[in-house]
Design a protein around this nucleic acid. Structure first.
Length: 766
DNA sequence: TGACCGCGTCTTTTT
DNA sequence: GACGCGGTCA
């Protein structure tokens, strides 16, 4: 490390840190492993360390900081900006593994035989491609399921196994044969070939090709080693072998590496994360200096102790003693309920009560669950109690059909070889190019070993047997893209996208049907355009005049819904435990603490069970003050009610830290719920005495969500005069919920009655 | 070629 | 319960 650092006066911000934290931040003489217990200020240490490095004179552009989520990256960037100012922080190479390496790959694509405008295939594209490969190979689609194949290919790549190596790996192939997937090696090979031909990379490729790039081009590896003086890695316990290797490639010479993690919070092994990376870090980098952050600044003693007692039941871990100096606090509340519905109701009622007593704001509460399926009952209950909520991980904006269609056009525009986009949009909107034609095109492309796009442009040359009508349709389709191509050089990404949506007929086809659904889809398209517009403007502000469509598309494909959630009004958060990692809340509800849920029935080995235990550990340690653990005796799953038994993990928690609440206590309490829902009284489930040992079908008990409830929201209510950017002025005639979305029915002066999604409609009050 | 219906399958977690 | 798929019909 630069010797000058020694002589610089210590920056004032170091005083914000505890002694151990400060030591960890200022030690920069070699590989550093920071084991950071839950709530111990991990992000703080990482951000301060970066700020400190900047203070020591290392240019921001020479620091690489890798995280797992965009959210974590953005948060750190913001915090660093607060410490050292935005003008420094801006040039940091900070982001997710995927986004940071993507930037490198764009620059070096040719070394890998790729074109720099390559497309990124998301999980949907990947599965669709695999499905087609299976079809083409004439295999049984019931056995060769895309998800299973993707899983194996992903696993292979994340363990740095090429198709050729895969085929030679007898352990792997016999495993495949056991699952009747004997053709896996060919599928893997074919998949790689097809991605290449499509000039596309999937998520794993962004890592895999980075590794290959360095591995096959020593001089490039050398360049990037020197390009980055310091590499930092967040959530190191979640790295997979491939990520670990790339890190090694980058730092092997200077060893200026700092990793932060907590083995107790390793919950992504299903995605190839390898807890051994952190456990063996000191073997890989023998001169490692280890720091342990064991003081938890987040939670009360009771919560920390309860979590400790649970996690100590695991065998494989770096022993540490997380402690809290905060107040002792409440015990964890253990709640036993009759059914999943009752559980959800209990939670909603408690949330309502806490809010009413001003104990806790909505924003400071979260409900965590193991599986997505659990969210439905919770959602219903929140709605019934008029509690504003957000579900993380719902179908994200970019996953909607109309958005994916539009993106398909944009993608095809930047990369003609993107076969998945072509497949998606060639007949969207319908233009008479159906399955039969598609099959012929794809078959011809394979027969002539060429790209589908070439066949589309010249079907006769490749012996595609189609009639005159179809030829014309294909020619029209192809020439449409020729026009786009010309515009591409004259317009910025926003204007280009606008034109494409217009000329492709996508927008029109949605406007043609007058139903609400199409309308909201049309609005989504507008919203997409707004997004591109913002992107272009942002890039211009940053001095990047040539914000290309490709850049936007790349950004979008690496975005998850985690990053796009807007929280304009206070709300409680519903999410999976996985999604909650790194977050903290005053009050946390962990729902569904039952066998078959946590641990999941898929967890078989002891290692699996330990990961599930860590999962619960993560859940509990999200809580600052209050933590509710709930379970139901009977749960509705797979379309029927099933008995459930409390999770084994509950007995792992030392009973001293648990308070077992009598389940009957809450259902006696009668409260009337008014307030957020104003007009109509809420239809409550009757508190019938429940019959414990009878299977009750709760199916019909779910309320119809289409039922219109009149509510007022975001300062809008019935009778308001509003302005809409497309439909002009109008009067709100109703506000109601539908499928979890809040909609307004507006009587427009010019255009008549329309129902609009408030989320997107951006109605302005006039 | 598109719309509709009934059947089977699935439910872990996501960059 | 929800979605996707394959089959059938217009």
């Amino acid at each position: 490390m630069n010797n000058e650092t020694e002589y610089q006066s210590a920056p004032a911000f170091l005083n914000d840190l505890s002694d151990v934290q400060r030591e960890a931040v200022t030690y920069n003489d070699g590989p550093t492993l920071i084991i950071a217990g839950a709530g111990s200020g991990k992000t703080r240490v990482l951000t301060y360390k970066i700020a400190y490095l900047l203070h020591c004179g290392i240019p921001a552009a020479r620091i690489m900081a890798l995280t797992f989520t965009n959210k974590a990256a953005n948060e750190m960037k913001e915090r660093i900006s607060n410490l050292v100012g935005l003008k420094h922080a801006r040039y940091l190479h900070m982001g997710t593994f995927h986004s940071v390496f993507l930037k490198i790959l764009r620059l070096e694509a040719e070394h890998l035989g790729y074109n720099k405008d390559f497309t990124i295939y998301d999980a949907t594209d990947t599965k669709s491609l695999l499905k087609n490969i299976v079809k083409e190979m004439g295999l049984d689609e019931k056995i060769y399921k895309p998800a299973a194949l993707y899983d194996r290919i992903s696993r292979a790549k994340n363990n740095v196994i090429s198709p050729a190596q895969y085929a030679r790996d007898s352990r792997q192939t016999s495993l495949d044969r056991k699952d009747r997937l004997g053709r896996m090696p060919e599928i893997y090979q074919m998949y790689v070939t097809r991605c290449r031909r499509a000039n596309a990379m999937d998520f794993d490729d962004l890592l895999y090709y980075t590794y290959l790039l360095f591995d096959q081009n020593p001089e490039l590896q050398r360049y990037y080693q020197e390009r980055f003086d310091y590499v930092l890695v967040d959530e190191y316990q979640d790295t997979n072998p491939l990520q670990d290797l790339i890190i090694k490639q980058l730092v092997i010479r200077h060893q200026h590496l700092c990793v932060v993690g907590d083995d107790a919070q390793s919950i992504y092994s299903f995605r190839g994360a390898c807890i051994e990376n952190i456990l063996q870090f000191r073997t890989t980098y023998p001169s490692t200096k280890l720091f342990k952050l064991e003081e938890n600044y987040r939670s009360t003693q009771n919560i920390v102790n309860a979590a400790n007692s649970l996690i100590w039941k695991n065998r494989g871990q770096i022993r540490k003693e997380v402690f809290s100096n905060k107040e002792k606090g409440e015990q964890l509340h253990l709640i036993d309920t009759a059914t999943d519905r009752k559980e959800a109701e209990y939670i909603a009622e408690t949330v309502y009560r806490l809010k009413r007593k001003n104990t806790c704001d909505y924003n400071q509460m979260a409900v965590l669950y193991r599986t997505r399926a659990q969210s439905r009952a919770l959602e219903e209950a929140m709605r019934a109690y008029g509690i504003p909520y957000i579900i993380y991980g719902d179908l994200s904006f970019y996953q909607r059909k109309e958005i994916k269609d539009a993106l398909g056009y944009l993608r095809l525009c930047t990369n003609r070889n993107d076969e998945e986009s072509l497949r998606r949009i060639i007949n969207t909107p319908a233009r008479g190019l159906g399955d039969t034609t598609l099959t012929k095109l794809w078959e011809a492309a394979r027969a002539y070993d060429t790209t589908v796009w070439k066949v589309v442009c010249n079907p006769l040359q490749y012996d595609v047997k189609i009639n005159k009508g179809t030829q014309k349709k294909l020619a029209d389709f192809a020439s449409m893209f020729q026009v786009f191509d010309q515009m591409r050089h004259q317009l910025d990404a926003y204007e280009l996208a606008k034109d494409i949506i217009k000329h492709s007929g996508l927008g029109e086809s949605l406007l043609a049907d007058k139903d609400e659904e199409s309308l909201s889809r049309y609005e989504n398209l507008q919203e997409l355009l707004n997004g591109i517009h913002e992107f272009v403007e942002l890039k211009k502000k940053e001095g990047n005049e040539s914000a290309t469509l490709a850049e936007f598309l790349a950004e979008v494909s690496l975005l998850t819904d985690m990053d796009t959630q807007e929280d304009d009004q206070p709300h409680i958060t519903l999410m999976t435990i996985h999604a909650a990692k790194g977050l903290e809340f005053h009050t946390v509800f962990v729902a569904g603490l039952e066998e078959q849920i946590i641990p999941s029935p898929r967890s078989i080995s002891e290692n699996d069970i330990e990961e599930e235990r860590r999962l619960l550990y993560v859940a509990i340690t999200r809580a600052e003050k209050t933590c509710y653990l709930t379970y139901a005796r009977c749960r509705f799953r797979n379309g029927k009610s099933e008995f459930a038994t409390p999770s084994r993990f509950l007995s792992d928690i030392d009973s001293r830290y648990l308070h077992n609440t009598n389940k009957q206590a809450f259902s006696q309490e009668k409260t009337s719920f008014k307030g957020w829902i104003s007009d109509e009284p809420v239809t409550h489930t009757q508190h019938k005495p429940h019959t414990p040992n009878k299977l009750v079908s709760t199916g019909q008990a779910y309320q119809k969500t289409e039922e219109k409830k009149h509510i007022s929201v975001e300062g809008l209510s019935v009778g308001c005069r509003v302005h809409h950017k497309i439909f002009g002025n109008g009067t709100i005639s109703a506000i109601f919920e539908e499928n979890g979305n809040i909609k307004a029915e507006v009587n427009f002066d010019q255009q008549g009655k329309k129902s609009l999604l408030l989320k997107f409609a951006k109605l302005e009050r006039i």
